Simulated scan of single mutants.
Amino acid sequence: MRQGYEKAQKYFPKGAGAILTFGIKGGLEAGRRLIDNLGLFSHLANVGDAKSLVIHPASTTHQQLTPAEQLATGVTADLIRVSIGLEDINDLIYYLEEALEVSQKYK
């Protein structure tokens, strides 16, 4: 983990943005539901933007890979990646909580 911090210091000397990665209960389908119901965040693969972004790699950027190939790259069916932008933190939390709740309704 220290290596990532050192690279961030090198490439972003004025400070790096926040990128969060977490797993979602319900795997692939729950991940798709979260993305489909998440307001304010843009559904894009790039990171480090001024706007907040979200992606579910297993159903987007890595969908062409087999489950074994996805796992080899660190992508699991439940993985969600969020890049935090400049929006108000309370708005981001509200929309993320709302989408998480919806994503868990249909198991």
Rank of each mutant, 00 (worst) to 15 (best):
L53G: 04
L28V: 05
I84T: 02
G17Y: 01
T66K: 07
Q70A: 07
G39M: 01
G15W: 03
L34I: 07
H56W: 02
G15V: 07
K10M: 09
A8G: 09
G74R: 10
G39C: 04
Q64L: 08
E29S: 10
L38F: 00
K14L: 12
A58V: 03
L38R: 00
R33M: 04
Y11F: 14
L100C: 13
L96C: 06
G74Y: 10
L100R: 00
V75L: 11
A50S: 08
I55A: 12
A99G: 13
Y94D: 07
G48L: 08
A58C: 14
F22M: 14
A8I: 05
S52L: 11
E101D: 14
A68T: 13
E97V: 09
D88V: 12
H43V: 15
I24E: 03
E6G: 01
Y11Q: 03
E97D: 13
G85N: 06
A77D: 15
T76Q: 14
P57I: 03
Q70G: 05
A45H: 13
F22R: 03
A16N: 11
I80F: 08
G26Q: 03
N90T: 10
I24V: 14
Q64F: 12
T60A: 13
K105R: 15
Q64K: 13
K25D: 08
E101G: 09
K7V: 05
G4K: 11
G17I: 04
Y11D: 05
G17P: 04
F41V: 08
I80Q: 06
H56F: 02
L79M: 15
G15Q: 01
K105S: 14
E87H: 05
N37C: 00
A16R: 07
I84M: 13
Q9H: 06
L79A: 11
A50P: 01
Y94Q: 06
E6V: 07
M1W: 08
K25Q: 10
N37F: 00
G26R: 01
L20W: 09
S83V: 09
E69H: 09
L53M: 15
I80M: 10
L20Y: 05
P57Q: 05
I80G: 01
P67D: 01
L28N: 06
K51R: 14
K105T: 08
K7C: 03
A72N: 09
L20R: 06
Y106K: 14
N46V: 11
V82D: 04
T66S: 15
G26E: 04
T60W: 09
A68S: 12
L65R: 00
G23Q: 10
I55V: 14
S52Q: 11
L53R: 12
F22P: 06
E101Q: 13
F12I: 02
R32S: 09
L44A: 13
L38S: 00
E97Y: 07
G23P: 11
K14G: 04
A77E: 15
D88I: 09
F12D: 04
E97N: 14
T61I: 02
G17D: 02
G39K: 10
G27E: 01
L92C: 10
G17L: 05
D88S: 11
I89M: 12
E87S: 07
K51L: 12
E87I: 07
K10Y: 09
L34A: 04
E97G: 01
I80T: 01
D36A: 15
G27C: 05
